[in-house]
Design a protein around this nucleic acid. Structure first.
Lengths: 344, 344
DNA sequence: TTGAAAGCGCTAACAG
DNA sequence: CTGTTAGCGCTTTCAA
């Protein structure tokens, strides 16, 4: 495989000149540039990325630490991230963690092995200690769908989103509205709970413990999955007499599991029980799920842009963006009962 | 940041010794090993991966070239791949291509920049020229859900799967069975068409041009998506008189779009039109779609295993694995009409 | 066993 | 403008 020396020899110049040509530096006569380019062409030469990385102290790749992504939300996020990273001609290295402890491993590895120039930290909570380490080392990181006061972050306004969802149900006339949430150790889960409670409070409705179920069932990851939603809904349905007439579910995928539970109990949506989800994944439109839309792809793209500017310039100032949400009304909330037959 | 020199100095040994300790080489006295390990500990040292890569000529990361993955099939595949790669303590670099031409770019980059030790080439067709290049350079590659006679590959038996699906419909008594396929320039699409035709032929049924629609509508990627399925089904439904009573759809996600079209025309599934999909993505069970199951996760894992063994040992012999499929009978085919009310 | 030295292939000062 | 040289941080002979 041709090296920079081969090119230099063939072009009859020094390796420094070749390097300059490769990196499109300005101080090079047109003539030599041409010579070098031709030699490169003839030798079918391509710089060795690892050697470049070592010399430049730049890997040109960014790491993405993400919860084990079986979730559709992550797929969309990754789509946005991927696209943007490609635009920057960088590589995307995926680290998906399944258990909380492994997260630490990745962090450490990424930080000390210097495999990446920066990291996108997705939907995962970061400890104060870790945050401090990043800050102190000045290692570029941006949190996505997560938050820490000392780090860059971009996320949706979860409180607002949950508020919107709950309020929508309230406006529709429901007053016994339950909530199915993800695991409470997840940031978005806590925030959505907050929004839910706030909406209840603002409208003179009481929060009932039995009408709130956090999906922290054993070995079901972060609770944001179909199975958890199913289990949680069953639990709500088992309340029988005091069963809620509406429920705000903290993610679409859980909502879909929940809908399945409702159907199995031979109840109708929304007649017997109305449902509003969160995320607006592609699936939601198919099943007619009313939900809160987050600009997922855009979020991924923005995150990459921010990370990139942090990587090649000094950290200027904090960046903590919060994107707006909007409610997408479909059939499961009972708002358009007569417009479409429901998927049941 | 501590380097190997710092460690050596602190431990009072040469850098070669430190290197040996790091790499757990056998010829080292227990005493010095301990000394070195302690120094490493004290300095919180971690070898620089890029430097290692350069010296070792090994990146410890594998590249994954994948069609722009908005598809659920890819998510599952990636899940398997990711898991296995982590087990090998390697990194996964994701290259997702959207247009055919960009695929070439990635191939070239990967091959010549030597960013990865091997590549997983997913659901994409590879030209004879490219295949020859890989073979000649001995660059490790395994095709997943794709095939080339000269390269390692692992995929499902698409012909068999399509055959199974079609045969199932035939056994149910349907004789005018249409097919909705992906874009014909995709390998699986062509294979599935073959299986479909074979099943018809074997059962004395004729193939009708008008009952076959390949999703090569403008700007809809590879056709394996919901929108394409929707459009295709509409086309079939517009046949009115000669409308088929059953259709085999070449992917679940298309099938879901197709089902939507059927519902919008106020027709029932399976009473008016039966549907069988392909893939068995998670979604399929939710909508009650009868489909052909491929062992997606397993496929990803096997692919990584094979790639790894190709990377650290010489190419022994060809590896062209074909995994079996099975049909998962749910409601859309009309086989269990009375078991469950249909999602309609 | 272990240390020293020679790369791995490139970038980036530093002269000229 | 351009060639030379000294690293980047490690692995790996080669001697000792």
């Amino acid at each position: 495989m041709a090296t920079i020396y081969d090119v230099a020899k063939r072009a009859g110049v020094g390796i420094g000149t070749v390097s300059r040509a490769i990196n499109k530096q300005p101080n090079l006569s047109e003539k030599t540039r041409l010579k070098v380019e031709q030699a490169i062409e003839e030798l079918n030469y391509q710089p060795h990325s690892m050697a470049q990385s070592l010399a430049r102290r730049r890997t040109n790749s960014i790491g993405c630490i993400i919860p084990f992504f079986t979730g559709y939300f992550f797929v969309q996020l990754l789509a946005g991230i991927q696209r943007k990273i490609t635009q920057y001609e960088n590589d995307l290295i995926l680290y998906s963690v399944d258990q909380t402890n492994k997260k630490e491993t990745f962090l450490n590895r990424v930080l000390k092995e210097r495999r990446v120039d920066g990291i996108l930290y997705i939907s995962l909570e970061i400890s104060n200690e870790d945050a401090a380490v990043f800050n102190q080392k000045g290692f570029p990181i941006v949190l996505v769908d997560s938050f820490h006061p000392d780090l860059d972050s971009i996320k949706v306004d979860n409180v607002e989103g949950a508020y919107l969802a709950t309020k929508h149900l309230i406006d529709l006339g429901y007053h016994d509205i339950a909530m199915i949430d993800g695991q409470l150790n997840s940031v978005p889960a806590r925030l959505r709970l907050e929004g839910y409670k706030k909406a209840l409070r603002d409208n003179g409705l009481a929060f009932h413990d039995q009408h709130f179920v956090a999906c922290d069932f054993a070995n079901e990851a972060d609770g944001f999955n179909k199975q958890s939603g199913y289990t949680a809904m069953l639990q709500l349905l088992d309340l029988s007499e005091s069963r809620p007439r509406a429920v705000f579910v903290s993610s679409d995928i859980q909502a879909i599991g929940a809908m399945q539970a409702v159907r199995e109990r031979n109840l109708r949506i929304p007649e017997d029980i109305a449902i509003v989800g969160f995320d607006d994944i592609e699936l939601a439109s198919y099943v007619g799920l009313t939900t809160v839309k987050q600009p997922t792809i855009e979020m991924g793209e923005l995150a990459v842009e921010r990370l990139m500017s942090r990587i090649d310039s000094l950290p200027d100032q904090g960046f903590q963006k919060q994107l707006g949400t909007e409610i997408v009304v479909r059939e499961t909330c009972g708002a358009q009962r007569n417009q479409h037959r429901l998927a049941q």
